Amino acid sequence: MPTTTSVATPVQLDAVRKTYGRGESAVEALAGVSVAFPAGTFTAVMGPSGSGKSTLLHCAAGLDTPTSGQVTLVGTDLKGKNETQLTELRREHVAFIFQSFNLMPALNVEQNVTLPTLLAGRAPDKAWVDQVIARVGLSQRVKHRPGELSGGQQQRVAIARALAARPAVVFADEPTGALDTTTALEVLGLMRELVSAGQTIVMVTHDPVAASHADNVLFLVDGRIVTQMASPSVDAVASTLAHLGEQARRQR
C-alpha cells in the first residue's frame, strides 16, 4: 500500500535561512526562502551553481537544520525534533533520490528497492515493485548487486527504491543526470504518474528537459527564489536559466 497523508501542503518553508560558517567567512546558502509544495505537485528547482538548490532540498527534508525560519514536513514542524524523530518521520512519509545512490552493497537490486518499505514495517507490493524495476530498465538485473552495475544502473536502482515505497514526498537531486535519454524520459514519466496519484515531488535539476515534466519551476539565485514558471516548456526554461546565469556572472 502507498504511504498516504491527508496534509494538503506536505512541504512548506517559511522564511528559511541557512548560513554556513561565521564572521567574514560566513556563506548564506538560503536567504529567507518561503515556499509551499502542495500535495500532488511536481516542482523542479533550478539555478546557477552555488545558488542554494541542494541546501533547499536538504532543509526541506530535515537533513539539514536551518539557521532560522520554519520547515513543516507532512504537517510536522521540524524545529526541535531529534534525529530519531526525524528518521521515523522520513521513514514513514519521505523518499530520496540523491546523486550518491546510497545503495547497500551486500543486497541485490530487488532487495535494495524493497528495503525502505520493509524498514517501515510494511510488506512490499510485489507487482508494483516489479513494475517500477521494469520501468527503469532493470528487469534483467534484479539479482545483481551494486558492484556488478554501472553508475547509470545504480542510479536507476536508487530511483526505483524511492518510487517503489510510494511515499507522500519524493526529494530528488539530479535524478536523471547519469541516465541515457530514453531511460530518463521513462523515469520522468513514472514520476508524473506518481504525482497524478497524489504524491509530491521536489526535484533539483540542471536539465531543461527534465524540468519541463514538472508542474512548476523555481529559479534560485544566491539563496533566493527570483522567479517561478508554471507549465514550463524546454525552451522557456533554457532561456530563463541562460538569463539568470548571465546575470550571476555579471554580478560576480
Score class of each variant (00 low, 15 high):
20 Y>P: 00
76 T>H: 10
170 V>E: 10
45 V>L: 15
100 S>V: 12
83 E>I: 01
144 H>P: 01
33 V>L: 12
127 A>H: 11
176 T>H: 09
226 V>C: 05
49 S>V: 00
22 R>S: 14
94 V>Q: 11
16 V>D: 02
227 T>P: 01
208 P>M: 04
1 M>Y: 13
144 H>I: 03
134 A>C: 06
105 P>H: 07
94 V>C: 12
144 H>A: 15
33 V>K: 02
15 A>S: 15
224 R>V: 14
161 R>C: 10
126 K>G: 10
189 G>W: 00
251 Q>S: 14
45 V>S: 04
52 G>T: 03
155 Q>C: 14
98 F>I: 06
36 A>L: 11
16 V>H: 04
46 M>Q: 10
225 I>G: 02
150 S>W: 02
81 K>N: 08
190 L>M: 14
156 R>C: 07
200 T>H: 11
51 S>T: 01
246 E>R: 11
170 V>A: 11
28 E>I: 06
238 A>W: 03
252 R>W: 04
4 T>C: 00
205 T>N: 07
7 V>F: 01
221 V>Y: 13
195 V>F: 08
245 G>E: 11
234 V>P: 02
131 Q>D: 13
193 E>T: 14
170 V>C: 10
200 T>C: 11
52 G>S: 05
149 L>P: 01
99 Q>T: 03
176 T>D: 09
183 T>P: 01
154 Q>A: 04
37 F>A: 08
42 F>G: 10
84 T>R: 12
66 P>C: 00
250 R>P: 07
107 L>T: 08
142 V>E: 11
6 S>H: 13
206 H>Y: 10
133 I>Q: 08
248 A>S: 15
215 D>M: 03
232 P>N: 00
112 N>C: 13
45 V>G: 08
22 R>A: 14
171 F>N: 08
17 R>A: 10
28 E>Y: 03
87 T>A: 15
221 V>H: 12
219 F>Q: 07
186 E>C: 11
123 A>H: 14
156 R>W: 00
225 I>F: 01
243 H>L: 13
187 V>N: 07
122 R>N: 11
